Simulated scan of single mutants.
Amino acid sequence: MAALTRLSKPSSSSAFSSMAAYVSRSFASAMASEPTAPSPFSPPPPPFALKPNLPRRDPNDRDVQWVFLGCPGVGKGTYASRLCNLLGVPHIATGDLVREELASSGPLSRQLSEIVNQGKLVSDEIIISLLSKRLEAGEANGESGFILDGFPRTIKQAEILVEVIDIDMVLNLKLREDVLLEKCLGRRICGQCGKNFNVASINVKGEDGRPGMSMAPLLPPPDCMSKLITRSDDTEEVVKERFRVYYEKSQPVEEFYRSRGKLLEFDLPGGIPESWPKLLQVLNLDDHEDKRYAAA
């Protein structure tokens, strides 16, 4: 797969323009054809005019276009951001887009707060609107390629995405659920700098044919230690609800891409020190020693 090893390609923004316009238009059409309950949120008009018969670019002439899947807390953001630094492409995380909107005190903030605090999935309508706005900003800045983290989460989103973007590879990160729960409950954010840390020290013994696993905590520097806060949705009840919703709504997306030969499954063997080198090897990105540590 050539896209896995090509690290520098010409910039192209046409895919971003096409996607932003298409997802807005497609979702508006879907909403018009399906009876729905009244919503206080109305998506903005498409930010771009859709170009008819826009040709898709050859993978050799653009940066990688990847999607990251995985249960909440598995580490999609951690590994996606590291790979983005390595490959020089933007990391577009819908979770970050939602949190930015929550912090903005904008018209969606209260509605999103209720959804997130209950562990529910944010509606396609809202996610697609936020993503379209992010893609518009990226096009204006001349971005090329991407790693999508948190999108698509539903079959409807995947169907919209496949109409406008040639996804090269879908990486499905996997981790046993008991470890995932400990990780989620150990997440902390520095209230000052906004960086993410984890105070959980995980040491699970192997049993029933499953290997043991150890993960050291990702502790903050001394300046951040006294400023750590817990996300309001990182309670055991909410985390387990997020798992349930993921298995019900998002796991079918795995099969969607598996049936198209796009899915690459990666079982995390442990924390970052154990998993990062093996992930680079799986992606054929370990051919130069400096690449192993470029994004560390």
Score class of each variant (00 low, 15 high):
residue 107 P to H: 08
residue 46 P to S: 13
residue 19 M to P: 01
residue 161 L to G: 00
residue 97 L to V: 09
residue 38 P to A: 09
residue 208 D to I: 08
residue 143 E to F: 10
residue 55 P to S: 07
residue 72 P to N: 04
residue 273 P to R: 00
residue 88 G to S: 04
residue 33 S to T: 03
residue 2 A to L: 13
residue 133 K to W: 11
residue 234 D to H: 09
residue 252 P to Y: 06
residue 282 V to E: 11
residue 108 L to E: 10
residue 212 G to A: 03
residue 274 E to Q: 15
residue 198 N to V: 11
residue 108 L to N: 03
residue 266 F to A: 02
residue 204 V to W: 00
residue 235 T to A: 11
residue 202 I to T: 01
residue 71 C to W: 09
residue 120 K to T: 00
residue 133 K to I: 13
residue 236 E to P: 01
residue 115 I to A: 01
residue 141 N to E: 15
residue 134 R to Q: 10
residue 289 E to A: 14
residue 205 K to Y: 10
residue 290 D to R: 11
residue 269 P to H: 03
residue 36 T to I: 08
residue 49 A to S: 14
residue 30 A to D: 13
residue 289 E to S: 13
residue 150 G to H: 01
residue 223 D to H: 14
residue 229 I to Y: 05
residue 50 L to F: 06
residue 280 L to D: 01
residue 47 P to I: 03
residue 232 S to E: 15
residue 185 L to C: 10
residue 113 S to P: 12
residue 239 V to Q: 00
residue 238 V to G: 07
residue 152 P to H: 09
residue 148 L to G: 07
residue 76 K to D: 05
residue 55 P to R: 02
residue 31 M to V: 09
residue 294 A to D: 09
residue 255 E to I: 14
residue 103 A to D: 12
residue 53 N to E: 15
residue 81 S to T: 12
residue 260 R to M: 07
residue 159 E to V: 04
residue 217 P to F: 06
residue 174 K to N: 12
residue 221 P to N: 07
residue 44 P to K: 03
residue 166 D to K: 06
residue 151 F to S: 00
residue 118 Q to S: 13
residue 37 A to L: 15
residue 88 G to W: 05
residue 139 E to F: 05
residue 17 S to R: 13
residue 276 W to T: 01
residue 57 R to F: 05
residue 87 L to H: 02
residue 115 I to D: 05
residue 222 P to L: 11
residue 69 L to M: 05
residue 109 S to R: 04
